[in-house]
């Protein structure tokens, strides 16, 4: 096993070190391409967090009648809990409602005391799941719960729903579209770099075949070399991204501009940014495999490596 692995490792190493300038240039080019993708991942991650938070603003309030029984309240709570469209349903008791009112409007707390408990009915704050956040869906749910036992009224701001869901949809769909374009750009860039590297050694591949090297013997060092370059490019991109983010969050423009905080406030977790070196390896391997197949194909013969 060792006698088979060592020559492959040596060949891969030689392929990378024989022309160090070319290797460094190729790796840096991959790194730049992956860095741009990484910036998108950083922004998209933060926008995702923001949209998730905004999504929680899409609430409807279900107000209970003053004479609603505890059983009716419990029944509604259970109903909301089991509803697929509902992400969260918070019970706001009359006492809690009163406390909120007095906290928001301290000058009116005397008025509230004079009018009695009935002023603050028991209610549920219902947050919808993202798939059900459209105004039509909210309307449908409101209609359904309006006729529930003990329910007095269901309220939601349709206009606010429409504006917010439109904004969230824009971010989500736009994000997917831009992300797809960037991934394609990275594929083209990394693919071109690796293909050029393999094509530059086409004559070498031919000679290897002539002395009786098998396809796997020829391919293995190239694939290993390409994977190494892809990994190095991805790691460099990750480090550059991390450094960029660290400098950004300490800068004055970041402190003064809330949009920047929204776009780049948090650095994505490791399992998200690990996509950079992983993508570097996968794309470099795929490009190398395809290029080797093309480099080995000869007209009039059937000797593909």
């Amino acid at each position: 096993m060792t006698s088979a692995v060592l020559p492959v490792l040596r060949e891969a190493r030689d392929g990378l070190t024989r022309h160090p300038a070319l290797t460094i240039l190729a790796t840096l080019s991959m790194a730049v391409s992956l860095y741009v993708l990484g910036m998108f991942v950083l922004i998209a991650w933060n926008v995702r967090l923001t949209t998730a938070a905004l999504g929680k603003e899409l609430q409807m309030q279900v107000y209970m009648r003053p004479d609603a029984t505890p059983e009716e309240i419990e029944a509604l709570r259970m109903g909301l809990r089991s509803d697929d469209a509902v992400a969260e349903a918070r019970l706001v008791t009359a006492a809690e409602a009163r406390r909120r009112f007095e906290g928001r409007y301290p000058r009116l707390s005397g008025l509230a005391a004079g009018l009695g408990e009935n002023l603050f009915p028991t209610s549920f704050e219902v947050v919808l799941r993202s798939a059900h956040q459209g105004p039509e869906e909210a309307e449908r749910l409101a209609k359904a719960y309006r006729v529930g036992p003990g329910v007095d009224e269901v309220r939601f701001d349709r206009g606010w729903f429409e504006r917010l869901t439109s904004l969230l949809g824009f971010f989500r769909n736009g994000g997917y579209g831009i992300g797809a374009l960037l991934v394609m750009a990275v594929m083209v860039t990394v693919g071109a770099i690796v293909r050029l590297t393999v094509m530059a050694r086409r004559e070498e591949i031919e000679i290897m075949k002539l002395v009786g090297a098998t396809a796997s013997f020829i391919r293995a060092p190239f694939l290993l070399g390409a994977a190494t370059q892809g990994l190095a490019g991805g790691l460099l991109a990750f480090l550059a991204l991390r450094l960029t983010w660290a400098m950004l969050v300490r800068s004055n423009p970041y402190r003064e501009n809330p949009m920047l905080a929204m776009a780049a406030g948090q650095f994505p977790p490791l399992d998200v940014v690990a996509v950079l070196p992983l993508l570097g390896v996968v794309l470099a391997l795929a490009a190398a495999a395809l290029s080797l197949r093309r480099a080995s194909a000869q007209p009039g013969s059937r000797n593909a490596a």
Partner: peptide, 25 residues
């Protein structure tokens, strides 16, 4: 079969006019 060709070539030594040496070795 194409997969047999490398084994055939190991039994045949070939010398070319342009040498065909690996330049980086």
């Amino acid at each position: 079969l194409p997969s047999r060709v490398p084994y055939l070539r190991r039994q045949i030594g070939v010398v070319f006019q342009d040498f065909k040496l690996l330049r980086r070795k």
